[in-house]
Design a protein around this nucleic acid. Structure first.
Lengths: 335, 335
DNA sequence: AAGGGAAATGCAATCGATTACATGCAGCCA
DNA sequence: TGGCTGCATGTAATCGATTGCATTTCCCTT
């Protein structure tokens, strides 16, 4: 029996006779044969592997998205390569190395800070690498994308605080240069403006997406001469760090300050106080992005028009927000 | 110029003349050539890729370890494939598919519940796949491993509670069938026994490694007719869920119960109360495991004697533990 | 100038699966 | 029986980089 027949028996069983098929399967079973993926990749010019590039796997937000991506990929018969801390001076070169080399058939990019020109070069012929941006989109980039409606969600979060009677509402910003930072701040501003509340720039505290920065933001908050009674934090980690910092200064949430986060990490519900937050559908983000990428890889002909999928976030009200009460009406602090 | 020369210029630059080398590099630059990894893998019978198999990427413990693994791997010129939710009825088959197929050169297994026989088959000739177990070891398995001294760390954690004057000390167990569960419980028992404290089996609450199970453990705790004044939780997530559950019943930590966790997740320090816990050196675990695996892959001849690296954990004392005080001496609950 | 040796390069086989094309074979109809 | 159809299988080229071996080039020595 020739190798050609064996190959056909394994990859398109209905093209060989029943007898042959049975013999091949039996032989495979007995000898423990597995096909050499490298040889197949070389010949077929694909690898049935996707590359997921993200800024920080260690961050629980991304790791849950990655979880969903991996699950969907395996379902569709793909392996998952991860590239962590992707953005950086050499991200263009790294992209180049991963593709045009039959290592991965497509790129799932969870990092909006990769230089657009590298991506354009990658997605354009002759490389023509299928590419999906997820979570962090690059504005106006001509790629398919899957994300949440950050601006609207931020507006909803801020409106929630307004609805509770707060008028002094500050914002803890994400890292500079991140799309999400801008979108969430824009939503925050929009909500205030719509409610006729003036924006006080000194109440927009620079921070980042991690707890340390949230902690630092608490210091800035304490240093304010006049302090807002509520804060909308760019994400849950920042909110948690901020609350932790407030506590060190003897302030209590929600008695003294109401705080809304963003993401609804698993920890948010068990934190004290349980965090009011905008839930991002992280599993759905990952799953839909992976689906879209694999469709793009397998689809013929390639869909040219970028499709932007926008998922919505959900306000989860917990204990970290409460109706505004003037300082005089608040219970005395417990010592 | 022949392809052979080009190949040599790129992979061992000192074997060609300076002139040729310069011409090759210039041509590579101009044409944007990248080598086809599949072809190289086919010829060299390796893939410069490692497979990391873990039970749950979404879990922040593992994702931080994975972060360190990826960093080390990239440093050594390796790519990282991830296989999530690895243990399962088909884990043997999945292992089989990944290896003997030139997809990965070695396996970094973070999951102690994969059937030992599959692993033995994989590691034995003819496959002879380099394999390192990390975090969760399998007792007596003949593989290199990198882990923390769980039993001793659990003993230290429990001793800390004993040192604070607690005599009623319970334990929130990890998931059944997990090595870590057994090791940590053993350390807990050892500390109590050494201190001459009788073990009360009803104070060893079954749970698991996640917050939901910790929450459920709080219910079991509340249902006890006589309750211990301190608990050692199998990990931080469990501890956090447990504390969250206690709060719902109006109990306060550390006033009513002291709690020690395990892992020192990033959230532990910012939780309220800040969690006393055994810090696992997660970055070191990941880095050392990746180093060991790549050494094993590249080492010739293969080292036959399994080497077990045991890292130590560190007790981080924070606010969730406090000296024992009889109920009568505790401040009255605040309403 | 001839010869020797080392360095540089070319030639061609090789890795293993896939696949276009050729061949073989059975069954069927006229 | 001859020829046609269509399925099953075999043959051999192919993917692209690597590498053992052969050959060329170049330099140095005598």
């Amino acid at each position: 029996m020739s190798t050609a027949t064996v190959s056909r028996a394994l990859s398109s069983p209905d093209r060989v006779s029943e007898d042959t098929r049975a013999r091949v399967f039996r032989a495979v079973e007995q000898t423990g044969y597995t096909l050499n993926q490298a040889a197949r990749s070389l010949r077929q010019r694909n690898s049935r592997t996707i590359l997921v590039a993200l800024p920080d796997i260690g961050n629980t937000f991304f790791s849950v998205v990655l979880d969903a991506i991996e699950r969907e990929a395996v379902l569709r018969g793909y392996s998952v390569l991860v590239a962590n801390r992707f953005a950086g001076h050499d991200s263009g070169r790294r992209l180049h190395e991963y593709f045009l080399s039959n290592r991965a058939d497509g790129l799932l990019l969870l990092d909006g800070s990769v230089p657009l020109e590298s991506l354009l070069a990658l997605a354009a012929p002759p490389a023509g690498v299928p590419l999906i941006m997820a979570c962090e989109d690059i504005a106006c980039a001509p790629f398919h994308s899957v994300r949440t409606d950050n601006e609207f969600a931020a507006e909803v979060a801020t409106r929630h605080l307004i609805g509770l009677g707060h008028r002094g509402i500050g914002h803890i910003r994400g890292p500079d240069g991140n799309v999400l930072t801008e979108e969430r701040e824009a939503g925050y501003r929009r909500a205030l403006t719509a409610a006729g509340i003036a924006i006080r720039p000194e109440w927009i505290l620079p921070a980042g997406f991690d707890m340390q920065q949230g902690l630092a933001a608490a210091e800035r908050y304490m240093a304010l001469s006049s302090r807002p009674s509520a804060m909308f934090a760019a994400n849950d980690e920042t909110a948690i760090g901020f609350l932790s910092g407030l506590r060190q200064h003897g302030l209590d949430c929600p008695r003294d300050v109401s705080v809304v986060g963003f993401d609804d990490l698993a920890f948010a519900a068990h934190f004290w106080p349980p965090l009011t937050t905008m839930r991002q559908p992280r599993e759905a983000l990952g799953r839909i992005a992976a689906e879209a990428l694999i469709d793009l890889i397998e689809g013929e002909p390639r869909r040219r028009v970028p499709r932007h999928t926008v998922l919505s976030s959900e306000l989860i009200i917990r204990g970290s927000t409460r109706a505004f009460a003037p300082a005089s009406q608040r219970p005395a602090p417990v010592v």
